[in-house]
Nucleic acid binder design. Structure first.
Length: 419
DNA sequence: TCTGGGGTCCTAGGACCC
DNA sequence: TCTGGGGTCCTAGGACCC
């Protein structure tokens, strides 16, 4: 038996924990650069504002309803997520953190005779200990557990949990779910299914496995079996180490100068390198990409990317910045109005794997310098020490975060300063 | 004026090997 | 005149997730 725990409007809930006056008001959270709406309270949804709506299109209506809007505060959400997950671990020895706001847990044997009570205990304890409201879906497969939480959302059930164990109830449930809402079925597959006259999860579940396997792929066939209550996906406690790491952001305002572009590439590379070291990994190659604003139809469009391999796996800021700048030089085109750039570190391996550098081009001091920088930044706050090439704090390309809340749970010094 | 970011997995096709 | 069969590896692109 598997339970899926899903935090309700997670980012919104995090902000509300520290601003209780917002509990019954419309609250929206914006993407980087304060661009799109990426999380919505129920009140915002009720205003008809869709996920991903550009903020400028929804601003007026939110203001009219006296709603609150926040820039996304990933430090806060990340920390709140850790708290929720540690509460969940008190319920089961087997938990899989699926995303920042969701986890699958295996229901322990001795709790399987009473999933209702088990669910409501989870909901109560997580709320009491963290302030975050969650919903719980229980079933014998992951995909059906997902369907169960979907039903809680859709039907606005009195209970914040749903149990899908017996056959009749499963069939009833699947009738209410359009294929696009099935976990693992996206737009493309849903469109094809619709063309074949398949609209609900119940209709999909009746299909022949071989047909689905042929028409689509193994993943979709697996989803089918899971909906037929045949488990195909295990709870994955030890997620595989990450294979790529990407740090990319749109610019606050467009970049037209090579010097600004280098600043941002140095900054993004340093950030990516720091993340890599935090994950205790090294990269074997780096990709740099730059693009113009593709929403602007009148502008000349350009997108370039280049991947360079390191002589041996690295994670020092110095080495990564060096190669990223080399790659940038190869793709940069003058007279373009750039909107975005990004750094991808590829072919990641554990930093414990020692790979001798054949040509000994590494500078052994680089790693030590990076280590010291990490220590200083972790003690005194991100950005305390950085490369001069990263430019100043108010550089035009830096992302906009005009409505940022405080790091209530991770930076007490910051609170003391501002209060 | 203003439109996000970060991942994974699968597949088909090309290049190459014997 | 007639030109095989069986592999592996890599890459780009598509599809999906949050």
């Amino acid at each position: 038996m598997i339970a899926l725990i899903d935090c309700n409007n997670f980012y919104v809930s995090c902000e509300r924990v520290f601003a209780p006056s917002l509990r019954n008001k419309p609250v929206a959270i914006l993407s980087n650069n304060d661009g799109c709406i990426v999380a919505r309270s129920q009140e915002i949804k009720d205003l008809g504002i869709k996920m991903g709506t550009p903020y400028f299109k929804a601003k007026k209506i939110i203001e009219r309803h006296k709603g609150a809007v926040f820039s996304s505060n990933y430090e806060l959400y990340g920390d709140m997520s850790n708290r929720v997950m540690s509460v969940l671990r008190t319920f089961s020895g087997k938990t899989e953190i699926y995303s920042i706001d969701e986890a699958f847990i295996k229901v322990p044997e001795y709790r399987q005779n009473d999933p209702e009570n088990f669910s409501s205990e989870i909901i109560r304890k997580v709320y009491k200990w963290t302030g975050i409201p969650v919903k719980v879906g229980t079933a014998e497969t992951k995909t059906l557990a997902k369907i169960a939480t979907e039903l809680v959302k859709k039907d606005k059930l009195k209970q914040l949990y749903k149990i899908l164990l017996n056959k009749r109830e499963i069939t009833q449930a699947l009738k209410k779910i359009p294929v696009i809402d099935i976990w693992g079925i996206g737009k493309a597959t849903a469109d094809t299914l619709n063309e074949h006259g398949i609209f609900t999860a119940e209709q999909f579940t009746a299909l022949d496995e071989q047909f689905v396997r042929k028409k689509f792929n193994v993943m979709t066939a697996r989803t089918l079996k899971e909906l037929q209550n045949i488990p195909c996906m295990k709870i994955d406690e030890q997620p595989q180490p990450q294979k790529n790491l990407c740090y990319s952001k749109s610019f606050g305002s467009p970049v037209t100068e090579y010097s600004s572009m280098t600043e941002s590439v140095i900054n993004y590379s340093s950030n990516a390198a720091a993340k890599l070291r935090k994950n205790k990994q090294k990269a074997q190659s780096v990709t740099v990409f730059i693009t113009t604003n593709f929403f602007n139809k009148k502008q000349k469009q350009f997108a370039g990317s280049k991947t360079l391999s390191f002589p041996s796996a690295v994670n020092s800021t110095e080495a990564i910045v060096h190669y990223a700048l080399k790659a940038l030089k190869l793709i940069y085109k003058n007279n373009c109005c750039y909107k975005k750039c990004g750094i991808i570190l590829n072919e990641l391996i554990s930093e414990d794997i020692i790979q001798p550098d054949l040509f000994e081009t590494d500078n052994p001091n680089d790693e030590k310098i990076s280590e010291v920088m990490d220590k200083i930044n972790s003690k005194y706050g991100k950005g305390t020490i950085k490369l001069a090439g990263e430019g100043v704090n108010d550089a035009c390309w830096k992302m906009k975060r005009n409505m940022l809340s405080r790091n209530y749970t991770t930076r007490w010094d910051e609170l003391l300063e501002t209060d």
